[in-house]
Design a protein around this nucleic acid. Structure first.
Lengths: 316, 316
DNA sequence: CGATTCGATCAAATCGATTCGACTAAGATA
DNA sequence: TATCTTAGTCGAATCGATTTGATCGAATCG
């Protein structure tokens, strides 16, 4: 096209007040909107309070951003089911969703969207990005056992959406719908058989504090010598509760975390370090491949046990 | 419609493999996609590292989610300019964007989208959600002056996109494009006239630590008796650097923060508490109103000076 | 009983970019 | 010179839901 013509077109567009090609029309015709949905279980503030989720999201953004796709945040709460149905996205990434029963996931599948799930049950047609939650927790538990601990308690992440915090029910294996929490519980059981536990209100320091207070000052159950926390934030809360109760860590109480977030290093937390950003990147890359018509393989990541200063020999 | 007909339709849809109404087509016809864009200056991981942004985003989500709109995350980096142009959104919220010159903002305006800017220069047709950055900083600075400080230094947030960390240039008033950093610098100038300063690498503890190390161990400039940090995270970094250098806070060095994030309370930080979530809510509500054809008013929020344990009388 | 109205049903036009096919013109080759 | 490419233009069909206007039947009212 000649430069003069270009200019003439530009001028005409200007005069007519043409605001540029309408993305809506383009996406209808092309069948692509350039949007990848990210479905989060929690409400936004909760989801982003945990550095793990942020790292994952960042990994996702890195890969999807590279092909010019935007990230649409979707939460399952309330009226937003409409959102899941009506959002013009090309694919979706499910983060920590209870995929088994969930209605929104069903809708997404029904729409025929390529789906990638991070840490979820295997589902037909949904590409899984996994983490060895169970084995990793077992490894951490084994570490505690080797230190002589036998009376351990678990502070679990919420095991079902909308569930309240409180003592971990005996039948958690049947009741839990949150995949990650469930797998980590199983890992603890693999080593210790049965144990007491408390469900925290989320992956936050405060929730960990509350839970540990309940566990450590209960008259109903004997005080554990070690606590397996299902996240580092929770573990930090546990440590604070112990301090509050004048228990020293690790002399009186050993604390095991999960995640390996930055702040855990300051506390010299013994924890299971997971590659959160890589997980996100893998999910992002999988989505990109799926959209390009490829057939990406499921990916599984493993955690590394990092021994810090919060676990020690069981008190005699 | 009769129940029988309904069922017949449903069956037919099932048989034809109809995947539900196509949101792309609906959004073309209706002229609405149900998506609100959120334009962030930083890359995602940086933006979400600061609890302030998360709180804001949560506030936004609360209001936009209530009308069934999803949030599309957009960053200005690299190839994503295409994104800003091609994303099918109904409106956009600009967070901490350098609105004056920015190309992406120009594109958004050109597209005729309703725009809401949080903490930005006034622009025609862009609804402003403001914060009294300048006055609040001045109030904090005044507090320091009343404590007898005269040699203060500022650790500033990045004053331009892509700018490196380093000493604060004398001509910051002309060079800065980041509205928030600029206003807070002006607030400090209102009270102290001139001062030394260092530009941090972002709103993180590490960046604050680096900056304070540079400021406090410099041989070029006399050691300040107080440091004005432009965010709480930075302030915490400053405190750590002071500790590292065996300076006690507030005896040897007073530290003033900004934001009032949760973690600041643990440090008993003297800081300017801003209503971050309200800011987000206001922006969200404004967008909703704009989309409904209303004419919302600009909103301005104010910070509250919370005096903690990190500021004290200047050493004699 | 005829006329009016209300509701339901259906066909057609619309949103705006993209893509496909046809057609034209200019240049290259036999 | 005639034919065949190649490039470039242009009109028309398409994506799929929504909305409007028209048509029809039934029920109500005078």
């Amino acid at each position: 096209m000649s430069e003069a013509t270009k200019e003439r077109v530009r001028a005409a567009a200007e005069q007519l007040g043409y605001a540029g090609p309408d993305p809506r029309a383009a996406s209808l015709r092309r069948g692509r909107s350039g949007i990848v949905g990210v479905l989060l279980e929690d409400r936004l503030a909760d989801a982003f309070r945990d550095p793990i989720n942020i790292a994952m999201l960042d990994g996702i953004a890195e890969e999807t951003g590279a092909v010019g796709a935007g990230l649409l945040l979707l939460t399952e709460s309330g009226t937003e089911l409409a959102n899941v149905t009506a959002a013009p996205m090309d694919a979706a990434i499910l983060i920590a969703c209870s995929t088994r029963l969930d209605e929104s996931v069903a809708r997404l599948r029904q729409r025929g969207l390529p789906l990638v799930a991070i840490e979820a049950d295997d589902i037909d047609g949904v590409l899984a990005i996994g983490l060895d939650n169970r084995e990793a927790t077992a490894r951490g538990a084994q570490h505690l056992r080797e230190l002589g601990h036998s009376r351990v308690a678990v502070v679990a992440l919420p095991i079902e959406t909308g569930g309240a915090s409180g003592p971990l029910p005996r039948d958690w294996d049947e009741r839990a719908t949150s995949f990650t929490a469930l797998e980590r519980l199983r890992g603890a059981r693999d080593v210790f058989g049965s144990f007491d536990g408390w469900i925290a209100d989320g992956s936050t320091i405060e929730a960990g504090y509350e839970a540990a207070m309940a566990l450590l000052s209960s008259e109903r159950i004997p005080r554990p010598t070690a606590i397996i926390a299902q996240s580092d934030l929770v573990a930090i809360g546990v440590i604070r509760a112990a301090r509050q109760l004048r228990l020293s860590v690790p002399e009186d109480l050993s604390v095991l975390g999960f995640d390996g977030i930055d702040i855990a290093e300051e506390y010299e937390l013994t924890t299971l370090v997971q590659p959160a950003q890589l997980k996100g990147r893998a999910a992002g890359r999988a989505v990109v491949e799926l959209l390009a018509g490829g057939f990406p393989e499921p990916v599984g990541f493993t955690c590394e046990l990092r021994i810090g200063a919060t676990t020690g020999p069981a008190p005699s």
